[in-house]
């Protein structure tokens, strides 16, 4: 109902006066995005770590993402918001090629990580995932000790030669969990509370020192106190890491992110801009409706 009038609306709108300032990005867009003109909005992303160019994702015959054009700035928090089923998780998984693990999933288009297309034949997804860590919606610690959970990534990545203890403690410290578990590092990660488990998963993801951390609704299973801890943590993480976070909560996106991408039903990225701009003065009427709660 809302999706079919979208292309018609998008074309006139996106030639607004703001788009002049991003001529560099626009040029690249016009070269690659013949089918889709890309989202509204004009964020300044000077040195993007990740660039998505005309990215389509299919599950079998159904297309879950349509020509996604987006760039993720370095050491900032980029939020992906939108209603359920609009393809936020799909986009996130296509960044570190976790979609490879889904038999029916197929990706078309380009996704660049530091200028290298991660879907090129010579890219090893295992190596890619060592650079781009991931935190999942549901806390999923291994049935191992807290210590071994955090050390797992170090071990598989061959980064366990130096002082593993030190690295484990640092990661737990960064994940704001060390104080709570200092005396029980040998106990099972499953004995922790949900919020602690999720911080353990964050510690596990950052211990091997990735460049980018992808988070898929990391706080959705948590209570408000645990949620605010995670949010503080994400704020700190952005000093060292590039963070891309999917969230259902608009308040959360507004609180923690620098850039916000709004996906809407059908798998279209409708608007991508500085978070303030999205929440105060979005260009798309649909986005405004969604943000003010009138949508879907």
């Amino acid at each position: 109902m809302t999706a079919n009038n979208e292309p018609a609306e998008m074309t006139p709108n996106r030639r607004g006066p703001e788009s002049v300032s991003t001529s560099e990005i626009d040029e690249r867009r016009s070269a690659s995005a013949a089918a889709d003109d890309g989202p509204l909005g004009s964020p300044r992303v000077s040195s993007p770590v990740i660039e998505s160019r005309d990215l389509d994702v299919f599950y079998g015959d159904t297309q879950a993402l349509h020509g996604i054009e987006m760039e993720v700035p370095e050491r900032q928090v980029t939020a992906l918001i939108g209603p359920s089923g609009c393809g936020k998780s799909t986009f996130l998984r296509s960044i570190n090629r976790m979609n490879d693990l889904i038999d029916v999933a197929r990706v078309e288009g380009d996704l660049y990580f530091h200028g290298k297309n991660v879907y090129d034949d010579d890219v090893d997804p295992v190596a890619l995932r060592r650079k781009i860590g991931m935190v999942f919606q549901k806390p999923n610690p291994f049935p191992k000790s807290i210590y071994d959970n955090v050390a797992y990534g170090l071990r598989v990545q061959g980064k366990d030669d130096g002082d593993v203890d030190e690295k484990v403690r640092t990661a737990l410290e960064q994940a704001a969990l060390l104080d709570e578990v200092e005396d029980q590092l040998d106990e099972s990660g499953l004995d922790l509370s949900g919020g602690q488990q999720q911080r353990l998963c964050i510690a596990r993801a950052i211990a091997p020192d990735p460049e980018v951390v992808l988070m898929d609704e990391p706080a959705s299973a948590l209570d408000p106190v645990a949620t605010s801890k995670i949010e503080d943590l994400i704020d700190d993480l952005a000093e060292e890491y590039t963070v891309v976070i999917v969230t259902h909560s608009m308040q959360q996106a507004a609180r923690i992110s620098d850039k916000t991408a709004v996906f809407l039903t059908g798998g279209h990225l409708v608007e991508f801009d500085d978070t303030e701009k999205i929440f105060e003065n979005p260009e798309s009427q649909q986005v405004e409706d969604y943000i003010t709660g009138k949508f879907g």
Binding site: M98, V126, G133, P141, Y152, V156, A205, P208
Partner: peptide, 23 residues
């Protein structure tokens, strides 16, 4: 979930099988 966690950390299929699924 556990497999995905390990793959997300850059584990190979063999590592996922032997160091996550098996234990």
């Amino acid at each position: 979930d556990l497999r995905n966690a390990a793959y997300g950390l850059g584990a190979t299929k063999f590592e996922v099988s032997t160091s996550v699924v098996f234990p």
